[in-house]
Every structure is written in C-alpha cells, then in structure tokens.
Lab assay of single mutants.
Amino acid sequence: MDVFMKGLSKAKEGVVAAAEKTKQGVAEAAGKTKEGVLYVGSKTKEGVVHGVATVAEKTKEQVTNVGGAVVTGVTAVAQKTVEGAGSIAAATGFVKKDQLGKNEEGAPQEGILEDMPVDPDNEAYEMPSEEGYQDYEPEA
C-alpha cells in the first residue's frame, strides 16, 4: 500500500510541476504579447503594419512553449490582441483601416495563427491545408 501511495504522490508532483510550467509559459506569452502591443503603439504610420505582424510573430513563438489545451486559448487571445492593436492603430490615425491585415508588401496577414497546427491532446499534428499553395516548377 505504501508503494501505491508513494507512486500516487510522485504522479501528483509531476502534474503540479507540469501545471506550473504551463502557467509560466502562458505568463511569458502574455508578456511578449504586451511587449508587441507597446511596440505597435510606438510606431509611426509606416511601421504600424509591420508592428502588428511582430506582435503576432512574438506571440506565436511563445505559444510553442505552452502545451496542451492552453495553446488553443493563448492563440485565440493573441489573435484578438493583434486585431485590437490594429483597431487602436486605425482609431489613433497611425494607419488607414484599409491597410490593416496586410503586410508591407500588401499581402493579407489573416491566418497567421489560424494555420498553425495545434492539437490540445498532444496526440497528432496535421499540416495546414494546401489550398493556398501553388506547385513550383523550376525553369529549365
């Protein structure tokens, strides 16, 4: 019985440690998101679009440190934060509304985080759909 109880105690310690790591990862992701939003706020009209992409990228980098179902929630929060940063930029006159959601080359930025393969159960990952990809044929 002692062996059984000791095993359960060790398992509990492992769960607590994993929860603490997840909590730490979420806190880091939130900190990076805040950094990115402050970065966007300090940019001029020309830099705002690039700044919004930076927020998304920093958040995406930190999301990889967070495991399990938390990833889905962090990704949703990050996307809403990026959308909010863009709205703030438009409201303050840093950028025109028609410039939001495009990178410096004018290509749409939507789907940055949505296409990231995420499995809350950590069982399997699927690649994003290939609808947006084109076949590449090298020139002879």
Results as ranks from 00 to 15, higher is better:
Lys80Asp: 01
Pro117Tyr: 07
Val74Cys: 11
Glu13Ala: 11
Glu20Thr: 13
Met5Ile: 00
Val37Lys: 01
Asp98Met: 10
Thr44Gln: 00
Ala27Trp: 08
Tyr133Gly: 09
Val37Ser: 01
Gly106Met: 13
Gly67Arg: 02
Val63Ser: 02
Met127Lys: 12
Lys102Trp: 14
Asp119Ala: 03
Ser9Lys: 15
Thr59Arg: 01
Ala27Cys: 03
Glu130Leu: 04
Ser42Ala: 14
Asp121Gly: 10
Ala85Pro: 05
Glu83Thr: 13
Ile88Gly: 02
Asn103Cys: 10
Val82Leu: 12
Tyr133Asn: 13
Gly25Phe: 14
Lys12Arg: 03
Gly68Arg: 15
Glu13Cys: 12
Gln79Lys: 09
Lys97Gly: 11
Gly14Gln: 14
Glu35Ala: 07
Gly25Gln: 15
Gly7Ile: 08
Ala76Asn: 01
Lys6Asn: 07
Gly106Lys: 08
Ala85Asn: 02
Pro108Tyr: 06
Leu8Ile: 00
Tyr39Ser: 10
Thr81Cys: 15
Ala30Ser: 01
Thr44Lys: 00
Thr81Asn: 01
Val63Asp: 02
Pro138Met: 12
Lys34His: 06
Val16Gln: 12
Ala76Gln: 09
Ala85Gln: 05
Val15Pro: 00
Ala17Ile: 12
Ala18His: 03
Gly47Asn: 12
Gln62Thr: 07
Val118Asn: 06
Val52Gly: 01
Glu20Ala: 10
Ala11Ile: 14
Phe94Asp: 05
Asp135Lys: 13
Asp98Ile: 15
Lys80Ile: 10
Glu61Met: 04
Pro120His: 05
Met1Cys: 00
Val49Tyr: 07
Ile112Gln: 15
Ile112Tyr: 07
Val66Met: 13
Thr44His: 03
Ala17Leu: 07
Met116Ser: 08
Val77Lys: 04
Gly25Glu: 09
Val3Leu: 08
Glu131Ser: 11
Thr59Glu: 01
Asn122Val: 12
Lys97Tyr: 10
Glu123Pro: 02
Thr81Glu: 02
Thr33Gln: 00
Glu123Met: 07
Gly31Tyr: 11
Lys10Tyr: 07
Val82Glu: 03
Glu28Ile: 06
Glu28Thr: 07
Leu100Trp: 09
Val3Ser: 04
Asp98Gln: 09
Val48Asp: 00
Val82Arg: 08
Gly36Gln: 04
Gly25Tyr: 14
Ile112Trp: 15
His50Thr: 08
Glu139Gln: 09
Glu137Trp: 06
Lys10His: 09
Val55Cys: 06
Leu100Ile: 09
Gly73Arg: 15
Gly51Asn: 10
Pro128Glu: 12
Glu57Lys: 14
Gly93Asn: 11
Lys21Ser: 08
Glu20Asn: 11
Glu61Gly: 02
Pro117Asn: 13
Pro117Thr: 11
Tyr125His: 13
Val49Gln: 14
Lys34Arg: 13
Ala30Phe: 03
Ser87Asn: 01
Ser9Phe: 14
Ala89Tyr: 14
Lys80Arg: 07
Thr81Phe: 01
Leu38Glu: 03
Gly93Val: 07
Asp98Gly: 09
Val74Leu: 11
Gln99Glu: 12
Ala140Tyr: 09
Lys34Trp: 01
Gly84His: 15
Met5Pro: 00
Met1Ala: 03
Ala140His: 05
Thr81Pro: 01
Asp98Cys: 13
Met1Trp: 00
Gly7Pro: 03
Gln79Glu: 06
Thr72Glu: 09
Lys45Leu: 13
Asp135Gln: 10
Gly84Met: 10
Gly86Asn: 15
Val15Arg: 00
Val118Phe: 05
Ala17Phe: 14
Ala69Gln: 11
Val3Arg: 15
Thr33Asn: 02
Gly73Ser: 06
Pro138Glu: 09
Ala69His: 12
Gly36Ser: 14
Asn65Met: 05
Glu110Ser: 03
Met1Ile: 00
